[in-house]
Amino acid sequence: MSSTQVPGVPEDITLLVGPLLLGYLFNWGLFGVLCLQMYIYFLSFPRDSIYVKSLVYGLFAVDCLQTAMTTHNAWHFLSRGWGDLAVLGDPGWSWIAVPLFSGIVSCTVQLFFSWRIWKLSRSWWLPGIIACVALAQGISACVSGIWFAIINDITKISSLFPSATVWLGGSALADVMITISLVSYLAKANSGFSQTDDVISKLIRMTVETGAVTATAATAELILFLVYKTNNLHMIPYVVLKGRSQKICASKN
Rank of each mutant, 00 (worst) to 15 (best):
R47K: 09
I146H: 01
E221K: 07
S106M: 14
V199A: 08
H72F: 13
W93T: 10
P19K: 00
I223G: 12
I200E: 12
L186E: 15
S106C: 14
T155Q: 06
K53P: 12
D12R: 01
L20C: 08
G29K: 00
P10H: 01
G192P: 15
A86K: 00
A250H: 14
R47E: 13
F31R: 02
F148D: 05
N253G: 14
V227C: 08
I178P: 09
D198F: 04
T108S: 09
L182V: 13
G145E: 00
L241G: 13
K188R: 14
R80F: 15
A215T: 08
F45D: 08
T230P: 05
F31C: 09
I204H: 08
I96R: 06
K202C: 09
W167V: 03
I204G: 07
S102K: 00
C249R: 02
F161R: 04
K156N: 07
C64A: 09
S49R: 00
I178G: 10
L34V: 10
M38D: 07
A174Y: 11
T179H: 06
K242C: 13
C107R: 00
S49I: 03
L126P: 12
K229W: 15
G81S: 01
Q37I: 13
M38Q: 09
W118S: 08
L21D: 15
T71R: 01
K252W: 15
P10K: 02
I248M: 08
F225N: 11
S2T: 10
I200A: 09
A164I: 04
W125P: 10
V105Y: 02
V98K: 04
I117H: 03
I13E: 03
A97Q: 05
L186M: 13
M1E: 10
S163M: 10
V52E: 15
L160D: 04
V33Q: 05
D175Y: 05
G81Q: 01
D198R: 14
M1T: 04
W28G: 04
T165F: 01
S3P: 03
R116W: 11
L100Y: 10
V208T: 05
I151T: 06
M235C: 09
R47P: 06
L88P: 12
Y24V: 15
E221F: 05
S49V: 04
M206K: 11
Y228P: 06
W125D: 05
I178D: 14
A136M: 11
G18I: 02
W75R: 04
S106W: 07
I150D: 15
P10C: 02
Y51G: 14
S121V: 01
H72C: 11
L20D: 10
S191P: 13
V239N: 03
I40D: 09
V133H: 00
I50G: 02
F60T: 15
I248A: 12
D90A: 14
E209K: 00
K247T: 15
